[in-house]
Design a protein around this nucleic acid. Structure first.
Lengths: 251, 251
DNA sequence: AAGTGGTCTAGACCACTGC
DNA sequence: CAGTGGTCTAGACCACTTA
């Protein structure tokens, strides 16, 4: 036990456990001392033991399993390359963080295509005429090793996508972008805006997120050669499942 | 108050407050009902009221100020463009999220340059010979509107940077990359790997992070035309202060 | 059936903020 | 100085997991 007098009890306990985890005393996946263990070892009340564990959980280092115990979390992120076609041509695939190089199975779990009234931000970006009410929305959820990791909603203008294979669940070989190209609206430039934040309650549920796990929100905009926006794709990712990679030259 | 019987008391209270915030009843910066208010209004114990507020705080929606109250958080992120020189040439500056377009003052707050033994991951990336022990490390902290938002540590090989202006706190016009170019090691390609996670306790302190605020970790690698790595820059950003932007073409 | 974490109560003292 | 959030105690009952 640490001997820092000014620190709070629960912080001392949390620090002890944190250091023990980093020492390897509790490897990923292993069980940490529970509330009752801490109450006994440190002579504290239940709420104090809980607060120490809550600290580690909110840091994303541990996860509680009701009725079972508190466990050290494991991380196996995958690399998501923003520019796939460039990857590997001039630099190897190593990541500075431990991550899987080999492709793991990223599969579509749920898919739904519909015509919807878009939110204002989408309407503005797609520069819809005032009399156009609906857009095509392709919603998908992706799973990695059985766990949902990404929610995606792709918005496309009706006058381009309606009645095409883009409105099918399977957009065909090459996906949506290939269909856009065939229709004379090939996207040639992309913008991705990323931000990280804590999840909303419904995102916590749909991504099965443990406490202490942020999400990364990605807004991708696809431009044609004339500068027209033909797709806006809003994604929400389990931050613990992803490393986002961008390769670029300054000119 | 909601009337969902299955939900926990603290969740009902948290949902009420969350919805009131979204309705605009409590605008950003305003004060939320405190523990005592909730105890009275909902007839619950202090710990239950605390748990409801803790829920909103962990979601990043509110922040507690000791002795003052719990307040709705405000967000004013800035856009950080990964490829500055491309920005604006073919797409405008609008972000899908509310963010400042105009440049706000991003200043260096703390700066230190030193020769250090690098961590293994840096040693491997820089491909240092076994007898080379030290690298040049440029550490800086950036502040935005008086609040620290970014920690940066830039690692450069001694055989390139030692004795040059890179070892000065002010690396001169054009910065480190201009000096590298002058020395015949111009970086021509970059890789940025991003991941989001909850902060370590020391990051919470150095970035003055409220609870419920993730950090984004960025590892940038600079390559010369021959594929040699001449700089590794590890950054840690307050996720609530930044939108990360990448523009690219698929070929 | 025993043990675990999740929720909740009803108190207490403290340090800090704001007036 | 009154009010606030932060910490802590000592109980209680519950739903869940594991064996």
């Amino acid at each position: 036990m640490s001997t820092n007098p000014g620190e709070r009890k629960y912080q001392v306990i949390a620090s002890d456990l944190r250091e023990a985890i980093q020492r390897g005393q509790y490897p990923p996946g292993s069980r940490l001392p529970g509330e009752n263990d801490i109450m006994r070892d440190y002579q504290v009340a239940r709420m104090t033991a809980r607060q120490a564990l809550a600290q580690l959980i909110s840091e994303g280092r541990a996860a509680a399993r009701k009725g079972a115990g508190v466990y050290v979390r494991e991380f196996r992120p995958v690399v998501r390359a923003g520019i796939t076609r460039l990857a590997g041509t001039w630099a190897d695939g190593r990541s500075i963080w431990s991550a899987d190089i080999e492709d793991r199975e990223l599969a579509v779990d749920q898919a739904r295509v519909a015509r919807e009234e878009p939110p204002d931000r989408i309407r503005i970006l797609l520069d819809l005429p005032d009399d156009e009410r609906e857009v095509i929305v392709r919603r998908r959820r992706f799973v990695l090793d059985g766990k949902p990791v990404l929610l995606s909603a792709s918005y496309l203008p009706s006058d381009i996508a309606a009645g095409t294979r883009i409105e099918q669940q399977d957009a065909g070989p090459g996906g949506t972008y290939a269909r856009l190209a065939e229709a004379g609206h090939a996207p040639v430039r992309f913008r991705e805006d990323l931000r990280a934040r804590m999840p909303e309650p419904d995102e916590t549920e749909r991504l099965s997120l443990p406490a202490g796990t942020p999400v990364v929100e990605i807004a991708r905009i696809a431009y044609t050669g004339t500068g027209q926006i033909v797709e806006v794709n809003e994604m929400t990712a389990d931050a613990s499942a992803y490393i986002f990679r961008y390769d670029f030259s300054p000119e």
